[in-house]
Computed example of a mutant assay.
Amino acid sequence: MVRLSLALILSLLVVTSGCGNTPSESSSDSKSKDSDPVESKGTIGFSALTLTNPFFKVIADNMQEEAAKHGYELIVLSAERDVKKQADHVDEFLVKGVSAIILNPCDSNGIGPAIKKANEKGVPVFTNDIKYDGDEGKVVCHVATDNYQGGKLAGEAMVKLLGDSGGKVAILHFPQAESCQLRVKGFHEIVNAHNDKTKNAKIEVVATLDGGGDRDEGSKVTKDVIESNPDLSAIFAINDPSALGARASLEAAGKADQVTIIAFDGQEIGKQAILEGKILCDPIQFPDQIGKVTIEQIIKYFNGDDVKPEILIPSKLYYKADAEKDPLFNKG
């Protein structure tokens, strides 16, 4: 009996020590060590659009922490905007026998066959930030910012900026992502409504360019658009990295004071740029909430509870005055 008890104790120690570690080092590791151990229940696979963008890293870190609370290990992989690579991630997750899969689709329609494959294996698929926009596969729940509402906020900020004078505007898009499509749609709705009410202060969108959602491509297309539109007044960029790329090109061309940037996201780099006056404002997102809520829905699904097909988290405008009061920059 003594031998049996010791063996049982040792096996339990192995199980509980294994579930406290996640694939990447994060703040959630230290927190889980201080809390009561949770019995390991399995793994969840997450294929991120990219982890070079801090926004998705915040989502991943919060999902790891929340999953650990419920006894699940989150396997995190970065698809680096490559839908084929992301489909391979799904195959890898299925081989590993994950309990659920989470995706930021690299292509809102092209990821359909991979989702269908998971469906056929009986593995539930969830998405966050970027919505699957096809009908080939089935997603249980999508958790994201209310991107349409956020796009409307960006439009309102542009009308506040140019509504009295009018001016030419360029949009740095990332059309492959449904979330960005919604941002641009909301932006256009507000700008078009303004233009319908005025004759002499119209806001003219002279170019909509694929800024790639990153700094390098944002810089490249901005250089092109200011060469073809030397009297450009403002830019709406669908995220902070592309906005900062745009700012770099404006500074290089001596047009930083002429062209005002409105971005989207509210990453720390974006908030810092707003504080420094490099970006006027952002409709900010809450990636920590997106990550936490995604795992909450997965646990509800595992428990047999009803799960809504979509949960949207509102954004809000963030200006320099907000940055000056933000605890992020007032840590002392």
Rank of each mutant, 00 (worst) to 15 (best):
V76I: 08
E120N: 12
E217F: 10
G218F: 00
F56V: 01
E80A: 11
V225T: 05
V293A: 12
V169I: 08
S32A: 11
A157W: 01
K131V: 02
K84Q: 15
E136Q: 15
T294Q: 08
F126S: 01
P37E: 12
F93A: 11
L162Q: 00
A237E: 02
E136Y: 04
N303T: 06
Y301I: 07
K33Y: 09
V90E: 00
G42D: 14
P124M: 09
K33L: 07
I295K: 05
D282T: 09
E120G: 10
T50D: 06
S78Y: 02
I311G: 12
V14K: 03
I102V: 13
L328H: 02
F329M: 12
V143L: 14
D196S: 04
L275Y: 02
I111C: 06
D216V: 11
T208G: 13
V259Y: 02
S78F: 10
I190L: 14
Y72D: 06
P23W: 02
L209Y: 09
D282P: 15
A100D: 05
N330V: 04
S242H: 13
F46G: 04
T294Y: 00
D36F: 12
A144D: 01
C19I: 05
K325Q: 14
E156F: 07
G277C: 12
D216C: 02
A237S: 09
K300V: 13
I311W: 14
Q289T: 11
E39G: 12
A7Y: 01
E156R: 13
D240A: 14
D129Q: 08
Q176Y: 10
E92I: 15
S165W: 15
G137W: 00
M1N: 07
S47A: 09
I313G: 13
R3V: 08
Y319V: 03
Q86H: 05
N303P: 04
G151Q: 02
D282G: 12
C106M: 11
A170C: 05
G110R: 08
E227H: 04
S165E: 15
L13I: 15
D29S: 06
G155I: 04
S99G: 07
K131Q: 06
G254C: 06
R183A: 15
G134E: 03
V159G: 03
L209K: 15
E217L: 07
G134F: 14
A201Q: 03
K316I: 09
A237V: 06
S99R: 06
E92H: 14
A118N: 09
L74E: 05
G134K: 02
T145G: 03
E178R: 11
A157G: 12
L275N: 12
L4K: 14
H89A: 13
V123C: 10
V184C: 11
I299A: 08
C180K: 00
R3F: 14
S24N: 05
H173L: 02
T127V: 06
V307C: 04
D305S: 06
V38W: 01
K202Q: 13
Y318Q: 01
S26M: 07
G186S: 08
A323I: 10
Q258Y: 09
Q181G: 08
G304R: 13
K168W: 10
V76S: 07
F329V: 04
G277T: 12
H70D: 15
C141Q: 09
S27R: 13
I311V: 14
N200W: 13
Q181V: 15
